[in-house]
Design a protein around this nucleic acid. Sequence first.
DNA 1: TTTAGTAGCTTTGTATTGCAAAGTGCTTTT
DNA 2: AAAAGCACTTTGCAATACAAAGCTACTAAA
Lengths: 98, 98
Amino acid sequence: MNPIGNLNKIFESRIRLGVMSILMVNSEVNFNDLKQMLEVTDGNLASHLNTLEENGYIKVYKGFIGRKTNTTYAITTSGEKAFKGHLTALEHMIRFTK
Amino acid sequence: MNPIGNLNKIFESRIRLGVMSILMVNSEVNFNDLKQMLEVTDGNLASHLNTLEENGYIKVYKGFIGRKTNTTYAITTSGEKAFKGHLTALEHMIRFTK
DNA sequence: TTTAGTAGCTTTGTATTGCAAAGTGCTTTT
DNA sequence: AAAAGCACTTTGCAATACAAAGCTACTAAA
């Protein structure tokens, strides 16, 4: 296998990378917090969250705080696996390329 | 600064990432070897090498082996710095995002 | 009760990028 | 002489990325 073959195409985007790393250490984060942490427009964030969800890497919880809508996002076990896999692929690429 | 702010946009591409990591450990690599290592089409590789060069991250040596052209690529000190910077930004993003 | 604001989107439109494929000029191999 | 390889450039298309605007369903302020 070539050195870049195990890199995950989904994680070529910094915003998706950022979402994943935030969700690796925070079990649940809502839309607005993600938006502020990453400093992106809401439309842009929504579309990236969408592709992460389509790939089964995050799951979405639509809930309420009182009577106000509150959408939170969490990483799935498959997402965790994929992200870790990507990171080790990165490491291998950097360390063992010869 | 937000967690993705220090990631280098140039290194969002796996091919460019691959080139850089190859050139981090191999002082000079020619076009064809890069092409085979990364398993990409020559046109595609050429364009990625071009953006890396335009950004001053690699330098190009056009030489000959006998009378046959031989182009080799090497990382620049600025490229090394940028790449290392990207890697530490990645690490920080992953470890300290909170 | 109008007005304004917030959350979390979707839609629209544009600009950028990624890529394969084909073409180029040279050289080497057969 | 024909075929193939090297290191590209050009062409053209398809897939992103992104901002901005619109939209829904609320809540809060005046």
